[in-house]
Design a protein around this nucleic acid. Structure first.
Length: 438
RNA sequence: UCCCCGGUAGCUCAAUGGUAGAGCACCCGGCUGUUAACCGGGUUGUUGUAGGUUCGAGCCCUACCCGGGGAGCCA
């Protein structure tokens, strides 16, 4: 067993640029290895990046050289050596190994550098996360989350999270997951919005950001049964205000990701020009304007008055190089809490933001009905249990004000920015209709 | 819930109704600059499950199981 006799400082691969010419220690896992006679090339992965470590026979002990030659993928090890700039090495830096210690030698790691199918990879999600592209994706997801929180913090919003256990349906439409709550039934939340409205009346500008659940049997690349949703809610705001907010936020988030995660985007072979053009102003279409476009489109089966289907959204989003905001849908296809447009009471004051490149809806929002009588009537029309909404109606009894907000689907947004085909890859441990392992 | 596609070695896939195959992975040997290395040798099977048709089924038929894509619904 080789031990570190030197006291070389431990560092990480992302900081190697500060250590050129120095002897340092890296701790990580074998990402890939190839040997050529009297030298081993070990691509070491430490969570912050990948560094090629070269061990020449003669530079290290016989025992270590032999051990390094038998390392399987994902063997864990600690290596000490000198760092040099090396154009032949991926990443630009390379370690000349002097000493090392194998923490665990591994055989038979399931995910090889070759091709694998989605079923196999999803069953091995706990290991798949170590792969380069999944690693890049999760780092982009992290940057999106951080950017969102920064954005709202800078604008004076307060994060007030909504509960995950709820006593009843929020909107009365989606199928919910039912859980046993002591002696009673409860449901996993499908949206934190109603609570965000209450929070907004207490704090002015708020957002809630957490997991939401839909028990719908959706099997498409846009659907998860568990996904994270960001929901800002603003007192004294109208539809135009939150459309502006959504536009500002998306521009900010994309800019931050471009600044902080460019290597990760490139690792995913993302076309950066598609992100660089995400600039205000975004195109805005009324439902009526969008309906006219679809009526003239040969591939659309859209009928006026219907909600847009997924193919219709794709047609609309492909017309623009940035997100398109479609507003003022017919009230019949939208939720009970949305305020009517005073200029046309058949329409709701709402907006859907459709991501570009055919990714579909990433944001849905609205101005909320603040009038007590109107809202009560709406709850009855929809056949919702009034008792369950008593607290929600209180918000219209005690200092009701115009207010508005929206919900953003995190995984769809990450998938769009990262350019992935499926939302499931934008979630670290995706939950889908037929998949709850690992 | 509905429509379409698929299930063969650890992985990715091939195999007119007629002996179950390849590449990769893995193991052994060789090589001082590999980037999915290369060269030589070797190991790898309840063809998703259960029936049926047939002299003979991985292939045809029925049912079921598992997964993928899409519709609806939504973010």
């Amino acid at each position: 067993m080789t031990t570190n006799s030197t006291s070389a400082p431990v560092t990480t691969i992302e900081r190697l640029g500060n250590h050129v010419g120095q002897t340092v220690t890296l701790q990580g896992w074998v990402y890939d290895k190839s040997s050529k006679g009297k030298l081993h090339f070990i691509k070491l992965r430490d969570g912050t990046g990948i560094c090629q470590c070269v061990a020449f026979k003669g530079d290290v002990s016989e025992e270590l050289f032999e051990k390094l030659g038998h390392l399987g993928q994902e063997s864990s090890l600690v290596l000490t050596g000198t760092i040099k700039a090396e154009p032949r090495a991926p990443g630009g830096y390379e370690m000349s190994v002097k000493e090392g210690r194998v923490v665990q030698q591994v055989e038979g790691y399931p995910i090889t550098p070759k091709e694998h199918g989605p079923d196999f990879l999803l069953s091995n999600r706990h290991l798949w996360l170590r792969s380069k592209k999944q690693w890049a994706l999760m780092r982009i997801r992290d940057a999106v989350i951080t950017a969102i929180r920064r954005f709202y913090d800078e604008r004076g919003f307060v994060c007030i999270d909504s509960p995950i256990f709820t006593p009843a349906a929020c909107e009365g439409t989606s199928t919910l997951f039912e859980v046993q709550y002591f002696e009673d039934k409860a449901y996993l939340t499908q949206s934190g919005q109603l609570y965000a409205e209450a929070s907004a009346m207490a704090f002015g500008k708020v957002y809630t950001f957490g997991p939401t659940f839909r028990a719908e049997k959706s099997k498409t690349r846009r659907h998860l049964t568990e996904f994270w949703m960001l929901e800002p809610e603003v007192a004294f705001a109208d539809l135009d205000d939150i459309m502006q907010l959504a536009e500002d936020m998306l521009c900010y988030v994309v800019k931050q990701v471009l600044e902080r995660r460019k290597p990760e985007l490139l690792a995913l072979e993302r076309d950066l020009t598609k992100l660089e053009c995400i600039q205000a102003p975004f195109p805005r279409l009324s439902y009526d304007e969008a309906a006219k476009i679809l009526a003239q489109h040969p591939e659309s089966t859209f009928k006026y008055g219907d909600d847009f289907g997924a193919p219709d959204e794709t047609i609309l989003s492909k017309m623009f190089d940035r997100p398109v905001m479609v507003h003022r849908y017919p009230k019949e296809v939208k939720a009970f809490y949305m305020k009517r447009d005073p200029a046309d009471p058949s329409k709701a004051l709402c907006v859907d933001v459709l991501g570009p490149e055919g990714v579909g809806e990433i944001i849905g929002g609205s101005q909320r009905e603040e009038d007590l009588d109107a809202l009560q009537g709406r709850i009855r029309e929809h056949g919702l249990p009034e008792e369950a909404f008593a607290w929600y109606l209180d918000l219209r009894r005690y200092g009701s004000v115009p207010h508005a907000g929206f919900g953003l689907g995190l995984e769809r947004t990450v998938g769009w920015i990262a350019g992935t085909e499926h939302v499931r890859e934008a979630s670290p441990y995706p939950r889908m209709m037929y998949r709850i392992y690992p």
